Amino acid sequence: MTAHGPEHGFADIAAVGGLLADPTRAKVIGALTDGRALPASVLAAEAGIAPSTASEHLARLVGGGMLTVERSGRHRYYRLANAQVAAAFEALAALAPIRPVRSLRESGRAAAMRNARSCYDHLAGRLGVAVTEGLVAAQALVRDDGATGTERAAGDRLAAPVAEHTYRLGPAATPVLAELGVDLAEVRGRRRPLLRFCVDWSEQRHHLAGGLGAAVLTRMESAGWVARHESRRALRVTDAGASVLHSVLGIEPS
């Protein structure tokens, strides 16, 4: 092997970095991090480019394993390949320089994203962390590492999925989740892991992901407890949602 040859077993980070280095492709990924599947025409509009140009970028993202595509009628719908793509995008957001806010509208959007947003299919931001802390306080979740609340452990990477979390279901998991309208037995019967956690990029604390995190967000949306802003990723808590979160988890969402 030559001195400059590739070493087997190492991830080709440069290949992924090259895909996201283009601002247009980054916008496309960002538009899909709420878990939706969108047609090329919508993604072109969100990225501010012509449909023909969008097709080239989408083909590269599909070829690079970051997106999947399926045909429905005359349209092709694109979505993130998996939750890891969304997590990687969130992690890069924590490392990227903050773009200057040039209007009150942009300032409002940035604040809304920090307050409550979806991260692929689960809650993130202050609301995601608060709900997770509420579940811990209510003994629906229990930490086994001696830490309190949702503070990240010493070995946790910033803005990334927690590789080996120390949470488990607590003694009050079934009744507390039932009060939120989540059937724990049904969620546990699914194939995906029940408990996963991320280090929230804006709060730098744990928020709940995995099958249970997805079930909580799905329930909150279907019950009308949260509603999406026009950006789609940002969420706002409705009056009904604020009432439920306060009565069940004792939190006061802003």
Rank of each mutant, 00 (worst) to 15 (best):
R152M: 13
A138C: 09
L180P: 12
E133H: 03
R205M: 15
G146I: 15
R102W: 06
G189A: 15
A163T: 09
S107I: 11
F197V: 12
L141R: 14
E70T: 15
G108S: 13
T68H: 07
G189I: 04
A83M: 09
G213W: 01
S118A: 13
E151M: 14
A86P: 08
V142A: 03
S118W: 01
P100S: 12
Y78A: 09
D156R: 01
L184H: 01
A112D: 12
T148P: 06
A87K: 02
G108I: 14
A88I: 13
R109I: 14
C119D: 11
A88K: 03
Q204G: 06
L184S: 09
G134A: 06
G210M: 03
T174Q: 10
G211A: 14
V182R: 00
G213P: 02
Y120S: 08
V176E: 01
H207I: 13
I98H: 14
S107C: 11
L194M: 10
A154Q: 12
A94C: 08
E70A: 14
V131A: 07
R205V: 10
L104F: 15
V176A: 01
L95Y: 00
E151T: 15
V162T: 00
V142N: 09
F89E: 13
A86W: 06
L195Y: 04
V199A: 03
V182H: 01
A159G: 02
A96P: 14
V131K: 03
E151K: 11
A86D: 07
A163H: 06
A159N: 00
P100M: 12
A160D: 06
R71A: 14
V129G: 03
G189C: 08
A185R: 09
I98S: 15
V162G: 00
P171T: 05
E186H: 04
V69P: 02
R114E: 15
A81I: 11
R192S: 11
R157H: 07
H206G: 07
A138T: 11
G134E: 02
T148C: 11
C119T: 13
L208G: 03
V176P: 01
Y167P: 02
R76F: 02
A172F: 04
A209Q: 04
T174M: 04
R157S: 05
A154Y: 00
G211E: 02
P100G: 10
A96Q: 13
E90W: 10
A138D: 03
Y77K: 09
V199H: 01
S118K: 06
R168Q: 11
L169Y: 01
H207C: 14
G155V: 00
V129H: 04
E179N: 12
H75W: 01
L169R: 01
R190Y: 05
I98M: 12
R114F: 04
Y120K: 05
A124N: 02
A147S: 11
L92E: 10
R205S: 14
R143V: 12
L169G: 03
L123K: 04
R105V: 15
L127S: 03
A111M: 07
L135V: 12
Y77D: 10
V101H: 06
A116P: 08
A86H: 04
L67D: 09
A93M: 15
G211P: 02
N115Y: 07
D200W: 13
R76N: 08
